[in-house]
Design a protein around this nucleic acid. Structure first.
Lengths: 151, 151
DNA sequence: TATTGTTATACTCTATAACTATA
DNA sequence: TATAGTTATAGAGTATAACAATA
């Protein structure tokens, strides 16, 4: 019979590790941690980067479309877009046939910044997943998209 | 020559989708969204669930060990643990040989709650990843752990 | 001197309600 | 009546500094 409470030497996380949600979140956070450091010179956080890359690749995209594509709420996008505009990275232009909407366009400076930032992003992905080969990376991408593209 | 600004019909997200960090975050969020709903009856958010499951599987685990295992900061754990204790799901006991530390233990009620909660968690994982078969799920788990267990 | 747990607090992220201009 | 964009604001999550008790 034991006289004292038990203590833990090595923490058993085996159950948690059977959950895809847990594993996906931990993996995402470990990559984002590096992302924040490597993107600091560009002053781009993950959301800023996502917004900028979508604008750069989709000239004339609207706020509504950005929100839908990235799963962010409209009121939270306003400040982001304003900041990017003040930094001279994007410009607003009237939507060609919907007077309520505004088309967002990358400026020359914005396009050049994103060319560099995307290069850094692609490189850091390799750095944060050094134990994955090209085939594993492709498989991982496919399986993750199978999950969130359901909806 | 065009007279009006371009507009976007279908948003091109192809570049973002080449990034594992982006895909992992989106997949995690889509699972967590369902998790929040299904765990509401247990009044357990993802972090509460993680903390409870580690305590249940590691009797006597300390706050320090929980923080390290889950990547959360000590000051943010205090409130969580206090709430779980007030709900009668866990108990604090003196650490057998370190007077600074406190061992955390699931109560009978806490153990029973977690048995149900873990069952629901495992089931909802299947529901949120209906297009993955057993082999794909296993592969996904392995690849994600290759990323965040590096550090 | 270092570590565990804690308090206080600030900062960021996310969510809701309500308004305007246009469709 | 519905939608795009906006404002104001509340709530949740995450971060740092500093302290008491113990090692």
């Amino acid at each position: 019979m034991k006289n004292s409470a038990p203590f833990v030497e090595a923490v058993d996380t085996s159950y948690l590790e059977t959950l895809i949600g847990y594993n996906a979140r931990r993996a995402a956070l470990s990559i984002i941690e590096v992302f924040l450091v490597r993107m600091a010179p560009f002053e781009l956080k993950p959301v800023d980067f996502s917004v900028m890359t979508l604008i750069a690749h989709n000239p004339g995209i609207t706020s509504r479309q950005l929100c839908h594509a990235l799963g962010i709420l409209a009121p939270n996008l306003v400040g982001l877009v304003n900041t990017l505009e003040k930094r001279g990275l994007i410009q607003r232009q009237p939507h060609p046939f919907d007077g309520r909407a505004t088309g967002l366009h990358a400026t020359q400076a914005g396009a050049e910044l994103m060319q560099q930032a995307e290069e850094v992003a692609s490189q850091l992905e390799m750095g944060t997943t050094p134990r994955l080969n090209a085939a594993e990376r492709k498989t991982l991408m496919r399986l993750l998209q199978k999950i969130y593209k359901n909806e």
